[in-house]
Design a protein around this nucleic acid. Structure first.
Lengths: 119, 119
DNA sequence: CCTCAACATAACCATATGGTTATGAATGAT
DNA sequence: ATCATTCATAACCATATGGTTATGTTGAGG
């Protein structure tokens, strides 16, 4: 497994995806969208936040490839684009496998060594 | 499943974890640490970046609960703390399940409706 | 055609982020 | 005791982020 930038998933993608997920409002928006597509007004409803703020968050999610926008009249409904979410999942799962595989070795290694003071 | 802040995982945790993962340097640091614990100097080696910059990144990772620090003499080696990584994984996997479950419904729903122009 | 509704965009602001250089503190070695 | 090494912290800077209000744009309906 390759754990650096030579992976098929571009580092910039992961930057955008993880950063997008780092905001609670945006995670909540994704949760709403998991129930189906929704307009800006609908997405805004649960929040005490201005409409432009929601539009900005949606743009961040769109740039991260996590949602797509349509145009239906004056409405611009958003919907999930799960492919990019799996990129983040993929990285984390790969990382977990890598770490877990290595952890076993490390564990074995530590067990065969004189005890060390940890701090 | 609960997709909001009332989950056992605090929203603030996820904020910190995902934000921490949003930086390529920090992901690279985690990859290095997946091979085993490492000192600041060792972690710094692959980067063209000052030592304080690395220390700052390590603090971000530590605040996110993704690593722990030890103290061995003048060295302060870092090591992975995978439990918090699984929080991010957990959120993403839960989200995927939620979305996938709902996607089926949505798909069925759309199939039973008159065709709509998408944009 | 006029107007309302639904958004987007611009301009602005405060704070956060990611880097730097300079300096300080603690430990190990001589 | 001194000195070098390892790292943390402080101060600073440029840019990004997350919010606001004000305004522009575009399509639907009377």
């Amino acid at each position: 497994m390759v754990m650096n930038d030579s992976t098929s998933t571009q580092a910039a993608d992961l930057d955008a995806i993880f950063s997008a997920l780092g905001d609670p409002t945006r995670r909540a928006l994704l949760c709403q969208l998991a129930k189906g597509e929704a307009s800006v007004a609908q997405l805004r409803a649960p929040f005490e936040m201005s409409q432009p703020a929601i539009s900005k968050h949606l743009k961040v999610l769109e740039n991260a490839g996590l949602i797509t926008r349509a145009t239906r009249g004056t409405s611009r409904p958003a919907r999930l684009h799960a492919a990019h979410l799996s990129e983040a999942l993929g990285w984390l799962e790969d990382f977990r496998k890598f770490w877990q595989g290595n952890f076993t070795q490390l564990d074995t290694l530590l067990a065969s060594m004189p005890q060390q003071k940890e701090d």
